[in-house]
Amino acid sequence: MAGLRATLELCRFDPQTDREARWELVEVTLPEGSTVLEALMHVQEHIDGSLAFRRSCRHGICGSCGMRINGCARLACNTQLTAAVEQARRMAAVRRLAGRGAPASADVAPAPVRVEPLGNMPVIKDLICDMSAFWAKLHAVRPWLQSLQEAPDPDRERLMTQDDWTTLAEGVLCLECGCCSSDCCSLEADEEFAGPAALVKAYRYACDTRDDQTHRRLSDLSAEHGLWGCTRCSFCTERCPKHLRVRDLIVRLGQLAWAEGLRADPGAERCGEVMASVRDTGRAHEFRLPPRMEDIVKTPARVSSAARALSGGEAGGDDPVPVERLEELRAILNAAEERE
């Protein structure tokens, strides 16, 4: 039977016997069209019964099988093995450029497909992570409908417009699979950051017209490890198996929070300062915005000398060339503010 051959490079760790993770190469031959999950199940059922991973629905709706394939967090069940093999080949080709001046040849043996557990989470065994912190953050946004209204009529549903449903629907399809959190750069730098999944869940409820706790929700999200801690890497959007525009939803939360007057976080403050600078000069005037150069650089003398060299020596030369038609811009920004 014509089959698909691939080599998997599996990250293995058994807490009972291993002190640290190790890599294992396994060769598989499977029918065309097989997914990475089918490859793993084949390994577990026929080659090595000790391999442990989560899986259930096998069609991308339960969210169980999140893992890093070639370093990218994905669901194994909707990743085609051929695509993973091709990606591994490309990565190997790029890596081979290192140390050489000539482009790499494409005729090399198929590079192994790396399979390892999700990032930003402790590993329990093999490809199974401890997701308790992930769930705790989801629970912390109080992900249930909150309404101070009296108990609704049991024979009548609350009404909702189709447009409101469409807005809400953007956040509903989150599988809570952990792929976004796995590759989130903010989580890498700050493990207490709420994380994209919790923010998507918060968005889903902040936008639900039947919920009346929006202000409180946004206020909670504006805390130290909340939405302003997003570093805008967009890995969340990139990794989401349901193609949710996660980063855009986080932006939307920021817009909603700002509109509610929740502007105390230094991240929010900076946004406001940039906006004020743009209104004032047409530019995000770096010399006048935080972070101050002096906070970053130990040798302000270098800075000033560079600036002076460019401008001809005057301190006022720090300012960039002003934007033309500034009055028109100001009128536009004022009008925009009315429409937020």
């Binding site: 609704p152 417009t161 189709q162 449903w165 509903v172």
Partner: peptide
């Protein structure tokens, strides 16, 4: 629905 289940809606807002 009262618990928050997001059913699709008709134009008149009902389930």
């Amino acid at each position: 629905e009262h618990m928050g289940c997001p059913f699709s809606r008709l134009e008149n807002g009902r389930i």
